[in-house]
Design a protein around this nucleic acid. Structure first.
Lengths: 68, 68
DNA sequence: TTGTAGACTGCCGTCGACA
DNA sequence: ATGTCGACGGCAGTCTACA
């Protein structure tokens, strides 16, 4: 499957596991909410720095985005 | 350390482990050589699709970029 | 073989607004 | 709480060329 869609699904999963809203994730990651929405739908080709910010916000290591 | 620098160092390490030139890596990943050079020096904020291409070229999984 | 420069196109990431 | 739109500035990624 497309890497963007995979990443988006994983992000959505990790966020929901934490019962966190897109709004809250946007705040913690210092990104904006519509952008988080698009990422979770696999519409955006996010950069390393965005991946890093999201990992920090979710309190995980980057590699966890790419593990089952 | 800065995530871009970390990624660059790791890419350089993985490439050299395989005794591969930047030129060859550029060819396999369908990127261009000057760009590979900049990435390895931590100057570029690469995207998910580029990370994916580099992983394929090196025949590794993406998570290996983010493991020690 | 690698680093660097300049110029270019397209898209990332932002923001306000509406459903 | 989430999806979507439109407009925008800045930078990702390309290419040629030279050290």
């Amino acid at each position: 499957m497309d890497i963007k869609k995979e990443f988006g699904k994983r992000l959505n999963q990790l966020r929901k596991d934490r019962k966190m809203s897109q709004e809250k994730l946007a705040e913690l990651s210092e990104l904006n909410r519509p952008y988080i929405s698009a990422i979770e739908q696999g519409k955006r080709n996010v950069s390393l720095e965005v991946i890093s910010k999201l990992a920090q916000a979710l309190d995980i290591e980057i590699k966890q985005f790419f593990e089952a």
